[in-house]
Design a protein around this nucleic acid. Structure first.
Lengths: 212, 212
DNA sequence: AATAAGTAAGTAACCTGTTACTATCTTACA
DNA sequence: TGTAAGATAGTAACAGGTTACTTACTTATT
């Protein structure tokens, strides 16, 4: 947001930032650019422009483009982890935490529209690749935490003992992802939070079981 | 799989196919290639190679690359529509149709792993683009059909009258998409059908409502 | 003075689309 | 039926553009 005017006045004020700073700026730039264009289409040129630097300079801070993406994924994993941590930290009954987690996750991707696009993009990489593994790790860890909550709720009697905890965790995570897909398709950010509020009770009822 | 040796023996047997045939072959090639690599990364060169033709020949049958993708989406919309049609045609109670639709959809994408990748890829295109609109239309139409079934089930007394039909439709469609995302991430095709079987009952219980 | 950050101008690879030419099929007609 | 003509499918090579990455040189900071 601070650049864009770097073409006026040439390099009148050649701002110098530390390597560390530039690396963070680059990650932010990628997240922002993902909001507008397809992640695969983000060029090193565009990243450099956005942070107000020639694109040669970018390669002083990253050995290659792949490692820029690695940095983006590190950021992403850390942020998503923190979102979950906060939801857990507030405490309360397992089902309450689950609900908080659900909405927190939705709110996070709603306020960072680039994030789901990056994850979807990752789904297209060959299954073996490093970044695919990273994405897998992030979602997998999330699913495990959800499953733990469900098991806990079963133990506490808030969910029926016959509930398939694995299936429930898959459904929970899948619901978040499904909402993201639909909101991306129908591109209404506010819509997503609203849809989440209406969908969650149904999800919970499914866990509680009607016919069991 | 049948190409790759086209450099031995030169053009020993120059096979000629009709334009119509080549166009279909190209679409098939794109679907197949999407299984392995990112759809955005599929080059006209690769498509041509796969159908055993120089890439100049490809442009005899399509004016440009975009229209290849248009053809792919036509194919996709038609096939997905047919899957839904069959599920409806078999008849029965609304909830039964819903279940059949769910599993049919899952089975289809499980047997065409390239399809979800193409749709995910589409999610990354700028929201206004033609192809984004096509994807939107496909998913939107599907959701409407699901909603109609739910309304019908409410009328027939198989679902509670207080059920939020819109939210339920979103959840239903979202569940399919969530399963696809997870199976792509954890790349087990068989896994997806199994997960679908375990998840569906939970979904249905959610519709029936536990607390209402 | 030394080091870290930045620039400008490459380069090699690759990608879409074009063009000038060639081979094959179809069909009209002698 | 045989063949010339026209249409159709295919090829090879290239043009123009973009992309990731490099290199030789410049400027700021400590």
């Amino acid at each position: 947001m601070t650049n864009k005017s770097s073409n006026d006045m040439e390099s009148a004020v050649r701002v110098r930032h530390s390597a560390e700073e530039r690396r963070e700026e680059a990650v932010d730039a990628v997240i922002e650019l993902s909001r507008e264009r397809s992640p695969e289409g983000i060029t090193t040129q565009a990243i450099a422009e956005r942070i107000g630097v020639t694109h040669g300079a970018l390669f002083r801070h990253f050995p290659d483009k792949a490692s820029i993406w690695m940095a983006v994924f590190d950021w992403l994993g850390a942020r998503l982890g923190r979102v979950a941590d906060t939801a857990f930290a507030a405490g309360g009954e397992p089902l309450l935490i689950l609900e908080r987690l659900f909405h927190a996750q939705i709110a996070f991707v709603a306020s960072h529209p680039g994030v789901p696009r990056i994850l979807f993009h990752e789904l297209q990489r060959p299954a073996g690749s490093t970044l695919h593994g990273l994405a897998r790790g992030i979602v997998g860890a999330y699913r495990e935490r959800v499953k733990a909550l469900i098991v806990q709720a079963k133990a506490g009697g808030q969910l029926p003992p016959g509930l398939d905890a694995d299936a429930a965790a898959v459904l929970f995570v899948g619901t978040v992802q499904g909402l993201v897909v639909q909101s991306t398709l129908f591109s209404g950010e506010l819509d997503m939070r609203d849809a989440a509020r209406r969908v969650f009770p149904l999800l919970l009822d499914g866990f509680r079981g009607a016919s069991a």
